[in-house]
Design a protein around this nucleic acid. Structure first.
Length: 374
RNA sequence: GGUCGGGUGGCCGAGCGGCUAGGCAGAGGUCUGCAAAACCUCGUACAGCGGUUCGAAUCCGCUCCCGACCUCCA
């Protein structure tokens, strides 16, 4: 009933024939946004890509459980300031108001881009208990240690015991181990620089914090995805996706946590989307090479000569393969706009054209995958 | 510097040893009172340099360019 497809698996670095764990069913987890500011256009590209992957899996007959999380727990910035805290200060809001505001904004934008909502959209703050439990299991298995109320994942021990650390991102475990001697005098609490927090003790001014066996604190950044994917898709599931900038450390650490707690790799296939560029360069706020979704729609930016409708932008994004960089330029957008209009004309004709019903249904269904009428 | 992707005509994108994929844009034309739509015609490109081969975009080597990651950005 389902068609055979091949997908590129980042874990094995090759295309593989897709075989779900359970015939006819697919469990797919995609790392969702951190809701402390407006959605980035690049973020939209990733979710538009996975929207099509989701739709395609449905189209070829799979029953898909698509889980995409909302990360609404604060995480530390480079300067040590918490994102939610920063957002709250900037806007004079409660942290959960910040999370709510940007979650709603994110949902609006996803609707504007005509993406189907995921089957389950769990929030990190709603799964603190699951995360605490996972920390405990990792501790019990000996892959984590406690320092001053914080709990750190012991990457070195994990690497030596399982040989699994670094597989996804291509980090060499020997280097990791060799590195350890030089860094014993590390300034912070970690035993090894590559260790990462799975539970952080909160400072006095930290607003989002919860009680735990180790301290009043908050879960580490990578933990929510491990905990929530396990909860809703099981210890093993089919597809794990996200932007390729998440490969390391986020996904690598996620794998470590999953193996460290349940002993198995979470996902069979890892899919990573490539980045959205603008005028051949990465988008960057500091050098002005950036545009927000709204600016793109309204044309209120020096980078475009006019506004482009969300569907044109979606069509443009889908013209390039999800594993290739997508270069946004005014010229490419206007070409996409004309192409999109033409395709829509053809779609209208097909819908009213007198032809056998079966054929018509088939065509309409096929076109819908890309044109997103549903 | 290391790791991982990517580099095919203006923009996408198939092909993955031999038979100029295709689409979009653009140009010209047909039809239209005008315009739009539609239709017709037009593009020998594979980052570069070597090598293997009768033959390479496709295999091998070197180089160059773009991007990501290397402690928290999709």
């Amino acid at each position: 009933m389902t068609r055979q497809i091949s997908i590129y698996n980042s874990l094995t670095r090759q295309k593989e024939i897709f075989k779900p764990l359970t015939d006819g069913h697919v469990g797919m987890y995609v790392c969702g946004p951190t809701v402390y500011s407006d959605v980035h256009l690049g973020n939209c590209r990733t979710f538009v890509s996975f929207d099509v992957i989701y739709r395609y899996l449905l189209y070829i007959g799979y029953q898909v459980r698509y889980v995409r999380n909302i990360t609404d727990v604060g995480h530390l910035l480079d300067d040590g300031e918490d994102r939610m805290l920063k957002g709250a200060k900037t806007n004079n809001l409660e942290p959960m108001e910040v999370a709510q505001k940007y979650t709603v904004g994110f949902h609006d934008m996803m609707r504007i881009f005509n993406t189907l909502p995921p089957s389950i959209e769990p929030r990190a703050t709603g799964h603190i208990i699951e995360q605490i439990e996972m920390v405990q299991v990792i501790l019990d298995n000996g892959y984590a240690y406690i320092k001053n109320g914080s709990v750190y994942f012991d990457t070195l021990k994990f690497a030596e015991a399982t040989g699994e650390y670094g597989k996804l991102s291509g980090r060499i475990i020997d280097d990791l181990i060799a590195e350890s001697r030089d860094n014993l005098k590390n300034q912070d609490e970690k035993n090894h620089p590559s260790d990462f927090a799975i539970w952080m003790k909160a400072t006095e001014e930290h607003i989002m914090k919860w009680n735990s066996p180790w301290s009043v604190g908050f879960p580490g950044w990578h933990l929510e995805c491990s905990a929530m994917s396990t909860k809703y898709l099981g210890k093993k599931f089919d597809i794990h996706g996200g932007g390729n900038d998440l490969k390391f450390p986020h996904h690598e650490n996620e794998i470590a946590q999953n193996i460290g707690s349940c002993g198995c790799h979470p996902a069979s296939y890892w899919l990573h989307t490539n980045m959205l560029l603008m005028n051949g360069k990465k988008m960057s706020k500091s050098d002005g090479n950036t545009i927000s979704p709204v600016e793109l729609f309204t044309g209120d930016s020096t980078h475009v000569t006019k506004g482009y409708s969300p569907m044109v932008v979606r069509f443009f994004m889908l013209q390039s393969h999800y594993r290739s960089p997508n270069d946004l330029t005014d010229e490419a957008l206007s070409a996409a706009e004309k192409g999109y209009k033409r395709l829509m004309e053809a779609f209208k004709i097909v819908k009213v054209y007198p032809c056998p019903v079966k054929q018509k249904v088939l065509w309409t269904k096929k076109l819908s995958i890309f044109l997103m009428e549903h």
